[in-house]
């Protein structure tokens, strides 16, 4: 047999149980995997983001279509989509520039987000963006519809949804789940039209202002309750906690209070 020449041939000629070869091969496989995946992820990222954005737009359109009479109002006003505003969540003030704001990136960056205290973090988010996007439909200076993006921890994934509120800012006009990876066939049914159809007309807070909305086991009996999906209790709880969080003082609470008192201003 020829004597192996060069460092590569010498490396390959080592016995397989040699620690240098074991470590070296593990390193090479890991390196090749890492290079393949980072290349693929980087190359495919723009397409994936475009897909997610297109799906979000479609759901928003579908949500607008599902609300009775809303299309007609929009046509009358001559608009095709809702107006998007940037809101400072702590003060509830609307800010001027809404272009190019990405809530999910903002929520990860310590400079554009806040850490949530454990007792307030019922939606399991850990951090929340300082500024969020809201979608509005106004007519003669009065709010017709508010659509709030919400998200929270479900049973095994982060659930994202759009919550639409009627002008009283307490009655749910619609709930559309935009992203989830819950158990297929069980928790994933929160994305079904049948379940989302249970939400319109539900009330979020009672007369005292206490947030009461909940997903319950079995039959809902009050205006604050929605039937849960059997076999998906924790997903249902996740959705309820998510809405309670975003409607509360750490979520859109200050914005909704301000909107209720001062209007669009």
């Amino acid at each position: 047999m020829d004597k192996p020449r060069g460092p590569w041939a010498r490396f390959l000629a080592r016995p397989n149980e040699d620690p240098v070869k074991a470590l070296g091969l593990a390193g090479l496989v890991a390196l090749a995997s890492a290079l393949t995946l980072s290349t693929a992820a980087t190359a495919l990222r723009p397409r994936q983001i475009a897909n997610i954005e297109a799906a979000r737009q479609l759901r928003m359109q579908a949500m607008v279509d599902a609300l009775p009479g809303l299309r007609a109002v929009m046509e009358e006003l001559g608009v095709t989509e809702l107006e998007t505003r940037l809101v400072d969540l702590a003060t509830g003030r609307m800010l001027a520039e809404a272009q190019g704001h990405d809530p999910e990136t903002a929520a990860r960056d310590p400079e554009t987000s806040i850490a949530l205290p454990e007792e307030a973090d019922i939606a399991g988010l850990e951090r929340r963006e300082a500024q969020a996007l809201v979608h509005l439909l106004e007519r003669d200076g009065a709010v017709m519809l508010v659509v709030l993006p919400v998200r929270g921890a479900g049973y095994q994934s982060t659930i994202s949804a759009l919550l639409a509120l009627e002008p009283d800012l307490n009655t749910i006009a619609a709930l559309t789940v935009t992203e989830q990876a819950e158990t297929p066939g069980l928790g994933a049914r929160i994305e079904s039209e049948a379940w989302q159809a249970l939400w319109p007309g539900r009330q979020i807070a009672d007369e005292t202002g206490a947030i009461r909305i909940d997903v319950v086991r079995g039959q809902a009996s009050t205006p604050y309750e929605v039937d849960g999906i059997s076999g998906a209790t924790r997903t249902g709880n996740g959705v309820a906690d998510m809405i309670r969080f975003w409607m509360g003082p750490w979520g859109y609470g200050p914005f909704l209070d301000r909107l209720g008192q001062e209007g669009l201003g």
Binding site: L12, N16, E17, D18, K21, A22, L25, A26, V29
Partner: peptide, 9 residues
Amino acid sequence: IRRHIPQSI
């Protein structure tokens, strides 16, 4: 790469 895969890993 089967001839170069160490049994241990």
